[in-house]
């Protein structure tokens, strides 16, 4: 953890304290970093010696601070279990759900095209063009959803490793 992260998180966990008070506290810690750096310490080392921003904030705010479910960046914070489940779901989608759905769509589209050739009466040019273009559309959609699923898998893995 570096200085900026530490101070941001501390400010965040100070929560509903008056703004002036929060800024005074941040100024104290900023001074601590400045002196520590002047004494030749790295930001990481200073952070380690300070303890976590949450623990520091708790002593100012008291018990009013509960382990908030919101991360400092304002996004909802999920547990690792959540991301593991999301990961499993995305892998399932990529390997099973998307290929099956897409091949079903593809099969229907191919059948329509084939039907046009078998029964020439229905095979108007417009109909054929529609059938072929929808086949192409289904293939594109399959590629896009698969890429999307892969991106989500990567995102989940990042979250779990964080």
């Amino acid at each position: 953890m570096n200085k900026i992260d530490f101070l941001n998180e501390l400010y965040y966990y100070l929560g509903s304290l008056p703004k002036a008070e929060k800024e005074e506290i941040i100024a104290d810690f900023r001074e601590h970093f400045r002196e520590g750096e002047a004494a030749g310490k790295t930001e990481e080392q200073i952070c380690r010696e300070l303890g976590t921003p949450f623990e520091c904030a708790k002593q100012y705010v008291g018990d009013a601070i509960e382990k908030k479910e919101i991360a400092p960046d304002g996004k909802k914070k999920h547990s690792k279990t959540f991301w593991a489940v999301a990961l499993a779901w995305n892998i399932f989608q990529a390997i099973v759900a998307i290929p099956i759905t897409m091949s079903l769509f593809l099969a229907v589209a191919v059948m329509i095209v084939a039907f046009c050739f078998i029964v020439p009466a229905v095979a108007s040019t417009a109909f054929l063009v529609f059938a072929i273009s929808s086949t192409v559309a289904v293939i594109c959609l399959a590629i896009i959803t698969l890429l999307w699923a892969v991106m989500e898998i990567k995102f989940c893995v990042d979250r779990i490793n964080k």
């Binding site: 506290i25 010696e49 623990e55």
Partner: peptide, 17 residues
């Protein structure tokens, strides 16, 4: 205080305040 006692230095500031 941090060196001599097993406290995190971050808890010194809340106490001072």
């Amino acid at each position: 205080l941090g060196k001599k006692m097993t406290v995190s230095e971050g808890s010194v500031y809340p106490m001072l305040k």
